[in-house]
């Protein structure tokens, strides 16, 4: 195990590098001279606009959403004591997308912009509560089954909502909601999502010590004086805020909440108090790197982010499933 402090410093450094690389990558070549000139004269040239209004919001969102999803994944895995509990895998992200789709395509969010993240968060909340009630104590299999059912239901209803929109372009946009993208997002999206995600992260941080105790089992945690109901509420609310706000502006980006904690566990151990900040950093790095990769593979084609995260995440998921099988057999 690596000291968490050192790991966080290293993670922070990687995050900074990715931040700068992400600002530098895009279909249009930027001239450093023009940027310096714009910064000096205060007159926004095309290069400056590209940097500050296209690449900066995209990069900020990649970092924020990656951190939020990593954090939510780690917290849900701690609460449900199930290593497969990723918001994408268990259908919570799909439900958020349904909420966002309803708020957006009915025109509600055009009138009240806050309706977009609020609806996504509300649906996410319903999803987490339903899953916790249905399958929270039923072991890995029942959680995944409930998640599969929830995902397909949410996917079907999303498709229905998009088909019912009179706007002819709506039905093509299911790809965005199912696979996620940060293409051409603006600062408005950052402002819309960030406050909710920060609140969610704060709630999850409050729950971390109790989650640590919960690794010993519910009875043992209760005997240590942990308020289980409070912990459950904090995690459900925190995860919903993080997942809902991110899905509202980027669509469903799967596997980040699964990958980040699993990559970090060998380094920091299983205790959620140590795992949560490490997962957040890993998630941020992962999504920023994926978003850079997306732009390098197909600079002008808007390859969906979920494609890249699934290419990395699905093999890991399969590996976990296999390991679970061999463990069950032995």
């Amino acid at each position: 195990m690596i000291p968490v402090g050192r790991l966080l410093w290293a993670g922070g450094a990687v995050l900074c590098v990715l931040f700068i690389v992400s600002l530098a990558v895009g279909p249009a070549p930027l001239s450093f001279e023009n940027l310096v000139q714009s910064a000096r004269s205060g007159e926004a040239g095309a290069d400056w606009v590209i940097l500050t209004e296209i690449r900066l919001p995209r990069t900020l969102l990649a970092l924020l959403i990656g951190m939020g999803l990593g954090l939510a994944g780690a917290a849900l895995q701690g609460l449900l004591r199930n290593p497969l509990a990723d918001p994408g895998v268990i259908g919570v992200s799909s439900l958020s997308a349904l909420g966002a789709v309803i708020a957006f395509y009915t025109g509600l969010s055009a009138l009240v912009p806050l309706a977009l993240p609020m609806a996504a968060i509300l649906f996410s909340l319903v999803g987490v509560i339903a899953l916790e009630g249905l399958a929270g104590r039923g072991g890995a299999l029942s959680l995944i089954l409930a998640g599969v059912a929830l995902s397909s239901l949410a996917g079907a209803l999303t498709s229905l909502a998009l088909t019912l929109s009179p706007n002819p372009y709506a039905s093509l946009e299911i790809v965005f909601w199912m696979l996620g993208s940060l293409n051409d997002r603006s600062m408005e999206h950052v402002v819309l999502a960030a406050p909710f995600m920060i609140c969610g992260a704060a709630l999850l941080a409050l729950a971390a010590p109790a989650l640590n105790a919960l690794t010993l089992g519910e009875a043992a945690a209760a005997s240590l004086g942990v308020d289980l109901r409070r912990t459950r509420r904090l995690v459900i609310a925190g995860a919903s805020l993080c997942v809902g706000a991110s899905v509202a502006v980027s669509g469903v980006i799967g596997f980040v909440g699964l990958l980040a904690p699993h990559l970090m566990r060998p380094l920091v151990g299983h205790g959620p108090a140590r795992l949560l900040p490490a997962s957040a950093l890993a998630g941020g790095c992962l999504l920023a790197a994926s978003d850079i990769l997306v732009r390098l593979i197909a600079p002008t084609a808007d390859l969906k982010l979920g494609v890249v995260t699934a290419l990395i995440g699905a093999p890991l998921f399969l590996y976990l499933a296999l390991r679970a099988r061999t463990e069950a057999a032995s």
Binding site: A46, E53, I54, Y105, A110, N167, Y169, L172, E173, S186
Partner: peptide, 23 residues
């Protein structure tokens, strides 16, 4: 066309950077 009801692709044309093309 189609600013209402909205869609992502029609809304994308209202990105703040669009108004600043070529200064």
């Amino acid at each position: 066309a189609w600013s209402t009801p909205p869609s992502l692709s029609t809304n994308a044309l209202q990105h703040p950077a669009v108004g600043r093309i070529a200064g």
